[in-house]
Design a protein around this nucleic acid. Sequence first.
DNA 1: GCCCGCCCTTGCATCGTTGCAAAGGATCAC
DNA 2: GTGATCCTTTGCAACGATGCAAGGGCGGGC
Lengths: 340, 340
Amino acid sequence: MARVRMRDVAEHAGVSVRTVSNVVSGYPHVSPATRERVQRSLDELGYRMDYLARGLRSGRTGFVALAVPFLAEPYFAELAQAVISAAARRGITVLVESTAGDPEVERRILSGGLTNVADGVLLSALTVPADDDAARAADFPLVMLGEHSVGDRFPRVGIDNVAAARTAVGHLVEQGCRRIVALGRNGSENGRQRTEGYRQALSAAQIRRVNWLVVPVEDWTREHGRAAVRELLDGSGPLPDGIFAFNDALAVGALAALDESGVRVPDDVAVVGIDDIQESAYTHPPLTSIAPDLDVIAERALSLLAEQEGAAGVAPREEATPYRLVVRASSLRARPGSPT
Amino acid sequence: MARVRMRDVAEHAGVSVRTVSNVVSGYPHVSPATRERVQRSLDELGYRMDYLARGLRSGRTGFVALAVPFLAEPYFAELAQAVISAAARRGITVLVESTAGDPEVERRILSGGLTNVADGVLLSALTVPADDDAARAADFPLVMLGEHSVGDRFPRVGIDNVAAARTAVGHLVEQGCRRIVALGRNGSENGRQRTEGYRQALSAAQIRRVNWLVVPVEDWTREHGRAAVRELLDGSGPLPDGIFAFNDALAVGALAALDESGVRVPDDVAVVGIDDIQESAYTHPPLTSIAPDLDVIAERALSLLAEQEGAAGVAPREEATPYRLVVRASSLRARPGSPT
DNA sequence: GCCCGCCCTTGCATCGTTGCAAAGGATCAC
DNA sequence: GTGATCCTTTGCAACGATGCAAGGGCGGGC
């Protein structure tokens, strides 16, 4: 059974192809009688739009590309789900690309690898330096998700990482922690910002510098979190009484390492993460975390894409989206400094 | 800066458009000199293929659609990652659709909602009945992932659910469990099959029927797993000494509920799940699970799609993919029946 | 020396839809 | 009654690539 084209529908309804197109696309000036007749033919023949042809002619495809480092990482999976849902509400289909954190792949995307098939690109990059050549050359609707901004040409949507980190560490301080380890430094901009927030919180609390410690990890995964904390526990230094993990995956790994070693959480060590992935409500003990509002991020990002499509010169900007501190048992100590 | 078309490249290189196309698509009969010259122009102008135009003309787009119920569920996220990686190796881009388990959406996909934009569809359905009308009418390359088969018209790729469930429950029996609860029955075909495996294992072990118990849940999520086990613990019936969760998310919820109530795992209750999501290596205690080989599933599925594109009448078949039992602490009891 | 055949290159039509702009018809006001 | 205006409908060309098939050029065989 061959494909049904507008031409077939037009013949069946006894009108021109253009009129069928008008009906399909909701053009207002079509007489009710004609609209009715065409609609019947559409239904009867089971017409389905060829999005490729429409995209080729009109220049708009109805696709948005979403590029994330690893879809299997819970945070990115949840982010992708939010984007897909938000896009569906707007009649947009999402193309998902996985960059594997490969700078080469990220660069390829920035240089337009997805341009003509997608109306816009949402990029959650790990590595691309802000002043990359490819970034400069990009001339299509692009919104950065999360941390990286690419130069000052494109808008960015995400939480304020410095403030979020400060909130998380500040919470640990409130809970009585005085020797807090930051877990997760790496080369990323994101890592720098969360490190900065950590520093600001410790400064504000007048924690002595000798008690500052930033532990680097390669990837923000459970595995690296566990390995880093194992090493920390095996080491000769004094044990921390708080761990601020740069994301929840690291925190989950940290909790596993602490559990193995019989360290009590939160009594011996309080733990807090960032992302509030679903998993975090089910760890042992449940993990305190910073919860970004993924739906807001997805909505804003799509709106910003739409804006870029419309006007030529839209002022790039940073959209700081809301977040909440979700307090769970991993950081909740018996001795409350003040009532919640 | 406008888009660079083949025409622009052709003019720049002083050849015809067709020759540029020949170079780009790797047509063999092009003189080295010409090829060289065209290639230089391609690079210099930064030509990038318009996939829409190519797709419109050639009928193939290089896209494959993947539809899963919820991308935020770890199992589906990991599956999607595997599919995206496998597709990337073949130069295919993946369109991800989230059905939210809505039968209407699944039906729409089966009735060809993605056809002309994707060369084939991978559908991981929850609800569509095997003999649905839409399923019968589908006339495009389609492969079912996971459990549901749609009539006998399309191939299915996934583990043998009955056998996998039997293996999981058999393992609990080996560990000495005698009153094993199955957690997760629902209306799905998948649920029926795992229930059947549970029954077979208990029968084989000659467990008395009074000790069989299948607990229904609405969704296979952490939350429903926790709620169901809480209810089980609050109830008046005798406690089980083993829990077979139909997937790892349920198992994670079950572990959380057991932890809350101070039930010791695996001493009081041993727990096993299916899927072996990454999270399962980090639960308290680490979760024993059945690990399907997602890479194999993704590879097979894409191969089957390609086959369907080629020949008209490919015999539909069920591809049972390999799986392993990954034993972790949640089921490993002190008293070993036999050495591993 | 001539013809045949292979290799390389090319032009044209086409995929299915929408932008553009104008034609035909009906309605309404004066 | 007549002109103007608006509403409907239409035809044509074009988006950028590839399928098809033929044309030109060159080398080799006899």
